[in-house]
Amino acid sequence: MTSVIDYVPGDTLLHRLNPVTKLALAAAIIAATLLADTYPLLLALLALTFALAAYAGVPGRLARLLKLVVPLGVVMFVFQLIFTRTGGVVWGFVTTDGLLTGPKVCLRLMGVALPLVLMLMVTRLTDLANACVEVLRVPYRYAFTFTTALRFVPVFSQEMNAIMEAQTARGVEYDTRNPIRKLQLMLPLCVPLLVSSVGKTEATALAAEQRGFYLRTRESSFKRYPLVARDWIVLACCVALVALGVVL
């Protein structure tokens, strides 16, 4: 099973950008989304994300993520309806202001979640870590922790799956249709998962140390990540995007 944020190889401009530039691009779209206050701009930013995904050849994968984000967005929408108490009452607890701002919250959520995931899809984790160390001068320790955490997500989800299968085969009703019951049943599994995770992280720390982790400096990386002309152009666009968010 592959995870949502698996790297998708490619040779587009987006793939070839400096990882730091990509990070900046994602950050700019997110910032603009948070600042934007009009529907056209929110929709345009979301469209921009999908256009970039289409260009990089990963629109399908990004769309798959919507399945996860849209239900969350709906929950946020409902909360917004409940907690917005200003404006005229439409029906029950629903107010006009709630109806006006609710969809915005929903769109913002999508606009914040998707760019970052898109960026991770077109960047190899190692490149991201090395570029952050070289360009942003992030200490390697933090970069390594971050990439390792991301790398372990699918490993742990596989482990969780295997544990659930083993428990189902013992007779635990994970095949129940009741989601709350399922969640209740899943909680005790945190113990075996935690046990195996702690063991794995320990072993990885040892393996890294035995391969010279503590000798690593900013100069170590074999690949270099200089910011070139196309990066500066994209970075300029990023500034423009944020400015757009402030203005509109």
Partner: peptide
């Protein structure tokens, strides 16, 4: 699985080479 420090084979080999200078 815990022995691995990278997600791509090439990077796994690079890790030690880079660190040991």
């Amino acid at each position: 699985d815990a022995q691995m420090v990278a997600s791509v084979v090439e990077d796994e080999l690079l890790f030690g080479l880079e660190n040991f200078g």
